[in-house]
Design a protein around this nucleic acid. Structure first.
Lengths: 193, 193
DNA sequence: ATAAATAATTAGACTGTTCTGTTTAATTTA
DNA sequence: TAAATTAAACAGAACAGTCTAATTATTTAT
């Protein structure tokens, strides 16, 4: 029989709280309260707030990379239709969430990515992982003549990635799905052959 | 002769400090220290930290709207070349700044735009203003047959806006100009007729 | 197998600092 | 002289992180 609390559960609470509220707006006490863990246990598992945040990002980043890979592996549609349904799903999730969080890794990048090297490079690591998954699918789409070959698969992945996160920022203040829809329409029109 | 300190100078300090460090990571004391103003004077001019941040955003937002309008009015190139040189300039500024700040309004949107209605809607107001300026130029480009008419000028403005801010977030953690260049190449290739 | 010893985890009071914002008084300008 | 501004001490809450003790799990010795 294990102990009462475990690292993973606390990380999951951290994911939720950081994603919705940002990094500097969240105190350790809030994490403790929402996870029901006492301070001593927290500092037994994590060295500091920064260390905790890094581990939160890492867990989510890795989980999401696997999730994306599985999604595209299981997707039986053509490559570009897989991409479309992936982004359609992300947009739906964001709408259901009422645009209140966006992407944890992007939020962390914007808020502290430049000042804090530890968090910045942790975020970048996972961005790169996701971009590679996207690039794989894009490449298949190019081979199937569905996607333009004017640019490399990785360049197009960066393009999709940037556009989507830009539009997430836009929905945070407009709280309206239409901006995601516009981005979707234009982007997929443009990359399609 | 006026008093020793004035609202505008403090707002400019706030712009710089908030842009580089975010909202919740900045304390009033930092603003006081960097502007040399005592606390009493600060609270004479501003009701609260939130009120201060709102005014910082407003001043920058309005200034930037005018600056953009002037830029495009003074630009003697064709519409799409004006757009290109506008974004090229923004990219150069960001590179010179070593990717350390990005756009204040976008940073604020991502960090607090969803939790804080005051700041969120202030940010949105200025986004809308900038988008309208962009749309005006895009419309001219469409009339001159330089820019695709598959989408409305405002939709394309949203598209440019989202992509650019997405890529700013990307440069914050990569600290490399190349991601802006990729975005630029792809985007202008796509919108050009 | 059981008991003793060791290690890991839990618990929360406590520390010192920093946070936003208040207050009161002195000074400056109109 | 009256109003606006400047000045800094002060207040109360929140902050990250420390510390000691108690509890629980695991390992070692018998």
């Amino acid at each position: 029989m294990g102990y009462k609390y475990n690292r993973e559960d606390i990380l999951n609470v951290g994911y939720d709280v950081f994603r919705r509220n940002g990094y500097h707006n969240v105190g350790i006490n809030q994490i403790l309260k929402e996870s029901g863990i006492p301070k001593g246990s927290f500092y037994n598992f994590f060295e500091s707030k920064q260390d905790f945040a890094q581990q939160v990002i890492r867990q989510y980043g890795e989980t999401n990379t696997c999730w994306m890979r599985d999604f595209f592996e299981d997707c039986t549609l053509s490559p570009i239709e897989c991409l479309k349904s992936f982004y359609a799903m992300m947009m739906n999730l964001n709408e259901e969430d009422e645009y209140s969080g966006g992407c944890l890794v992007n939020n962390m990048s914007v808020e502290v990515g430049r000042q804090n090297d530890i968090i910045g490079s942790e975020a970048n690591t996972h961005f790169v992982g996701w971009l590679n998954v996207l690039a794989t699918v894009i490449e298949k789409g190019q081979e199937a003549n569905e996607i333009t070959v004017e640019f490399s698969a990785l360049e197009l992945a960066e393009y999709l990635h940037a556009g989507f996160y830009g539009v997430l920022s836009r929905t945070k203040v407009t709280r309206n799905r239409v901006y995601m829809d516009i981005w979707f329409e234009i982007t997929f029109k443009f990359i399609s052959t």
